[in-house]
Design a protein around this nucleic acid. Structure first.
Length: 872
RNA sequence: GGGCGAAUAGCUCAGUGGUAGAGCGCCUCGCUUACACCGAGGAUGCCGCAGGUUCGAAUCCUGCUUCGCCCACCA
């Protein structure tokens, strides 16, 4: 073993080993209980980021844990074609090359896309493997696979035939840059500082009319009414009359509608059903016509007004405003801060437009999706997402699933010359109703999230009744980022319930978003992007994984802190050297596998042995509970503290001499503690733990195949823990004193003589006898308290220790320390006395009161001794 | 506008009723054959503010302040 842990070669070795062992392969015929995860398929829009890495770590840790617990684990990997996202990426590339997809043509564009997919698909899977992911690679899926496409068409056709999918002209979120509709969930609202234009609409025949406030004067051309709050006194006289739309003087009616807020703007709202979602609804209520003055490319259609015709919306706004200004209709301009929708893919401002689109009637799908979460059949983690989910699902509106882009799954619908519209799975050549062969295929493609919604069951072979589906569906856990709870998780639940009759997963982990070190969302333009593979290269995959486990379930988004990754890299090195210590004991010269050791009888164990075993039993319980509760952070914290702060800092230090003498109890206990630690840690840090377990004889090929440790109740030993606690405290105190005295620590340092008088605590007596000289450079003798010169007294539990010798008495450091101690202990004593004199003593539980009493006792004793020692 | 979350050491964060913690950073000392990717010691906190419940509150309740996120048809 090298003196330091070097991740790279070891990781490579173990990745190969796991592959050879087919560690990830899931056998549907296995008799074991099943544990399954559908890997959220990364978009093939580039390489993986920290969010993917974090998610892979969570899932892999859970998979490995369940393998150790004897589950048949099925973790299916795959990738998503991400139509709109990928198209945008390629379009940006083309733009840089000075061309467009239209110039390239459909075929060449498609070729570009396929090449892109080939490159990045491989790279993404390789990245997952670098992080140690043990997916079942033989089951890799892609949302453009033929079988997957059939599943999508089947779902579409069923919904269509059940009248849950319909086509119709309605107002949609239109992205003029993508030239496509997008769903409500793909709109990102951003704050804009705009001008609030107050515009006068004159009454019929030149009356005063009323004033309307708007941010979009260019859409005045499409106004079909002005709405006012019902019963509003200010407008009562005008209701039922008409006013002049101020650009072309068309007469439009003044109506009343409860959706109008009297406090906003002027209290009168211009109704533009063609270019506002809210107005569209108001228009429907009042059976108003829809006028459209903006085309699909976002430009004005205003043949009657050459000044406006053909302008983009923003320029048209200024022109319209100046026209209004000239005609005197513009009565006021005020600044306004409000939210404006943007396309979450390309950032363009969304233009609400009325176009024919395909819609899913969501209400019928949403009701069961609401129920399974409300009733706890599906559990969200952290749990506060439950309420958010329920509110959101209850308020769902119909889902626009058609997109007018080039990439994606075609909408499997055709229309014949006789206007029969039908959905299909295999594209037919004639109309099933009239046999007409002149079929028109629907030109649109599906929303990517429509296809992703089927992921958990489509990847297992649905709609075929496969063994995999029977065995591994519903999946056990879904782990994903919070950002796609609405876009994806809810849709999977709706579709899963609808098409399999079952929930798609039992537990949903919504992990934190990883922000840059500056606290901002990671983005290339900000330069705060962390590359997970860079972390693996510099610190090792285990370190990255341990970091991920630690931050996974935070309630807030997580600022990336590289020093934590570094800390876990050091932890791996520490573990490495802990095993190396045992290696050196068995093989002082060369190297070999650490042989097994027979379990030692209880009475052969020292206090330290019993203490570490007791701690180990507790740790086993803690980590097991943490893994069961999906709390990876609690697991890694517990193991880290135990391994470093207890096993390495105390136990191994205490046991070194015994190990050198091949004390059987020490050898067995050390081996047991080390191996157990490796097993508990293996799901989170698989590389270093496998490499280290491999140093021991009799271990399986990988710890994934080991049995998850059971806590040994017989190892629990409260007396040993209490004894060690006292001993640790004594040691720490002595060390501080000695350090104050400038005593040199070290193997060859001169030893300081001290006197100790112990109480009747046999554990403490034994610990001092066996161990004190190992931890602190002292020699000691036991003597009754009153026979020792009262110098520098120190009280720990029932034990009093005094440093002896004239040098100590004269040391100003020690005197200063004692004075500080005295002041502290006096305060403590006073506080405890007051506390115990009050209602606390009668109201608090007996054991809490008892604990305070013994603290008081100790304080009183210390105070007396210190006073005596300091007395002139 | 509504909802959710957060506020703890210089930094990043654990900690859900009983003596305020970790990692990093900082100061002092030490290369003692497991580890200097280490060890020993040390400094550092009105646990955001104000009330309340309780013998006891960082923790539970109420209000407030400040940040973050999500949702929303405020023109």
């Amino acid at each position: 073993m090298k003196p330091a842990f070097e991740p790279a070669p070891i990781e490579e070795h173990w990745r190969r080993r796991w592959a050879q062992l087919h560690l990830g392969r899931a056998d549907p015929a296995s008799p074991k209980p099943s544990f399954s995860i559908a890997l959220p398929p990364p978009n093939i829009t580039g390489v993986l980021h920290m969010g993917h890495a974090l998610n892979a770590v969570i899932q892999d840790s859970l998979c490995r844990y369940h393998r150790m617990r004897g589950f048949e684990v099925c973790w299916v990997p795959g990738t998503d074609h991400a139509a709109i996202a990928t198209q945008n990426v390629i379009e940006r590339q083309l733009a840089q090359e000075g061309t467009t997809k239209e110039e390239l043509g459909r075929d060449a564009f498609q070729e570009r896309v396929s090449a892109w997919y080939r490159t990045y698909q491989g790279r993404i899977l390789e990245q997952l493997q670098r992080m140690g992911a043990t997916c079942d690679w033989s089951r890799e899926r892609f949302t453009l696979d033929a079988a997957y496409v059939r599943a999508i068409r089947r779902v579409f056709k069923d919904l269509f035939d059940q009248n849950l999918i319909y086509r119709g002209p309605r107002i949609v979120n239109w992205c003029p840059r993508c030239r496509s509709a997008i769903s409500d969930e793909e709109v990102e609202y951003r704050e804009h500082q705009d001008v609030f234009y107050h515009v006068r609409y004159r009454g019929e025949g030149g009356g005063e009319g009323l004033v309307v406030a708007t941010t979009r004067p260019e859409t005045i051309l499409a106004d079909v009414a002005v709405a006012v709050p019902p019963g509003d006194q200010r407008f009562q006289a005008l209701v039922g009359t008409s006013v002049e739309e101020p650009l072309t003087k068309r007469l439009i009616p003044v109506i009343e509608d409860p959706a109008v807020d009297p406090k906003l703007g002027t209290g009168a709202l211009k109704i533009t059903p063609g270019h506002s979602a809210e107005d569209f609804e108001i228009g429907e209520r009042h059976h108003l016509p829809v006028l459209t003055v903006i085309s699909l490319d976002g430009r004005m259609i205003a043949p009657g007004l050459p000044d406006l015709d053909g302008l983009d919306a923003e320029s048209a706004r200024e022109v319209a405003a100046s026209l209004l200004r000239q005609s005197g209709a513009l009565v006021r301009e005020a600044p306004l801060v409000h939210q404006v929708g943007h396309c979450d893919r390309c950032g363009a401002v969304i233009e609400p437009l009325v176009t024919p689109q395909w819609w899913v009637r969501v209400a019928e799908l949403a009701a069961p999706a609401h129920r399974v979460v409300a009733e706890g059949e599906i559990v969200l983690h952290p749990e506060h997402f439950k309420r958010q989910y329920l509110d959101w699902v209850a308020g769902l509106r119909d889902w626009c699933i058609s997109r007018q882009i080039w990439l994606g799954h075609r909408i499997p619908v055709s229309t014949c010359a006789n206007h029969h519209v039908f959905a299909w799975i295999d594209e037919p050549s004639r109309c099933p109703e009239c046999g007409d062969t002149n079929l028109q295929a629907d030109p649109d493609v599906l929303d990517t999230w429509f296809s992703s919604a089927l992921w958990p069951f489509a990847i297992l072979g649905w709609p075929e009744e496969t063994q995999e589906l029977a065995r591994f569906y519903p999946t056990t856990v879904l782990s994903t980022g919070r950002d796609i709870l609405w876009l994806w998780v809810t849709r999977m639940i709706m579709m899963g319930l609808r098409f399999t009759g079952e929930i798609p997963f039992h537990d949903v982990i919504l992990h934190a978003t990883i922000l840059g070190a500056d606290g901002a969302r990671q983005s290339k333009s900000k330069g705060n992007v962390v590359d997970p593979l860079d972390m693996v290269d510099r610190y090792g995959a285990d370190a990255l994984r341990a970091w991920g486990a630690a931050v996974a379930m935070g309630t807030q988004d997580c600022k990336f802190d590289e020093s934590k990754v570094d800390g876990y890299a050091k932890f791996a090195n520490k573990l490495w050297n802990m095993v190396r210590l045992l290696q050196h004991v068995h093989f002082p010269q060369g190297e070999g596998r650490i042989p097994g050791a027979g379990e030692s009888a209880r009475e052969e164990l020292t206090l330290a042995d019993r203490w570490i075993l007791s701690r180990l039993a507790r740790l086993t319980d803690t980590v097991t509970a943490a893994m069961e509760d999906l709390e990876l952070g609690a697991a890694i914290d517990g193991i880290y503290q135990f391994a470093w702060r207890e096993l390495a800092d105390w136990y191994l230090e205490l046991v070194k001499d015994r190990l050198a003498e091949w004390d059987p109890a020490a050898l067995w206990t050390t081996r047991t503690a080390l191996l157990r630690t490796l097993e508990l840690l293996h799901p989170i840090m698989p590389f270093v733990t496998d490499a280290l377990a491999d140093q021991f004889e009799g271990q399986p090929d990988t710890l994934d195949l080991a049995n998850w440790p059971e806590a040994e109740p017989a190892w629990l030993d409260p007396a040993a823990e209490e004894g060690m606690r006292g001993f640790q405290q004594l040691t720490a105190e002595l060390r501080s004193w000695l350090q104050d005295l400038g005593v040199r620590f070290g193997r060859n340092a001169p030893r300081i003589p001290i006197g100790i008088s112990t109480s009747d605590d046999p554990e403490m007596v034994a610990a001092i006898r066996d161990h004190l000289g190992t931890m602190v450079p002292v020699t000691w003798e036991e003597a009754p308290a009153d026979t020792l010169e009262a110098m520098a007294p120190l009280v720990v539990g029932g034990t009093t220790v005094r440093l002896t010798g004239a040098a100590i008495l004269e040391s100003p450091q020690i005197r200063g320390r004692m004075e500080r101690d005295l002041e502290q202990v006096r305060k403590l004593r006073t506080r405890l006395e007051a506390h115990l004199a009050g209602p606390f003593a009668t109201s608090a539980p007996e054991e809490v009161v008892e604990r305070e009493r013994s603290r008081l006792e100790e304080a009183v004793r210390r105070e007396a001794l210190l006073r005596h020692a300091l007395a002139p």
